[in-house]
Simulated scan of single mutants.
Amino acid sequence: MTEAFLEHVNFTVSDPAKTAQHLHDWFGWNIRWQGPSIYDGVTYHVGGSNSYVALYSPGTPNKGAESSYQTRGGMNHIAVVVDDLDATEQKIKESGYQTGNHADYEPGRRFYFRDENNIEFEVVSYT
């Protein structure tokens, strides 16, 4: 029996093309597919050969104000493993984002940041 694996997660964002470009610049991910979707929206699938992040924007977005950490079923953060934590952090900072909550722990190192959609990312390296 093959082990189950996570294929994708889906986020609602303000500008899927812009977010897709950031994910390409920061993590080297590519657009696997893009096209129209539910509620007159558009979706981009961005990632590698086995998994991706779906970036969805409805035709008329709704501004969410609730905290995912306080909402049952809310997405708290997405963690991305990279080889070179320092180089990745530099790319993110050069894009205008602040990083924080740095930690060295066994077996790796990490930091967090939020993008313009208020999605929290954890970036971690085990090398």
Rank of each mutant, 00 (worst) to 15 (best):
F5A: 07
D104L: 10
Y44P: 00
H77S: 03
A54P: 02
S51E: 07
E94Q: 10
Y69L: 12
S37G: 13
I38D: 12
N76Q: 12
E106D: 13
N10P: 05
L23I: 03
M1W: 12
T60G: 15
I31Y: 05
W29D: 03
E94M: 11
Y39G: 12
I38S: 15
A87G: 09
N117V: 01
Q98R: 11
N76V: 13
Y44T: 04
P58S: 07
D40P: 08
L85E: 12
Q21R: 13
Y97F: 05
E106A: 11
A4F: 14
A20I: 00
D40F: 12
A20Q: 00
N118Q: 13
L6M: 10
R32L: 04
Y39T: 09
G41F: 02
S68I: 10
A87W: 15
V13D: 00
L23F: 02
L55F: 01
H77V: 03
T88W: 06
Q34R: 11
Y69E: 07
A20L: 00
G108Q: 05
V42L: 08
V123C: 04
H45P: 00
T88H: 06
V124L: 13
G73C: 08
Y44F: 03
E94D: 12
E3M: 11
Q34N: 15
T2Q: 09
G41N: 05
D115M: 00
F121Q: 02
T2N: 14
H24Q: 07
H77C: 04
D40V: 10
K18R: 06
V82L: 03
K18C: 01
G47W: 00
G74M: 07
S68Y: 11
T88M: 05
N118A: 11
F11N: 05
S125E: 10
T19A: 02
K93Y: 12
P61G: 06
V42Q: 11
W26C: 02
S125R: 07
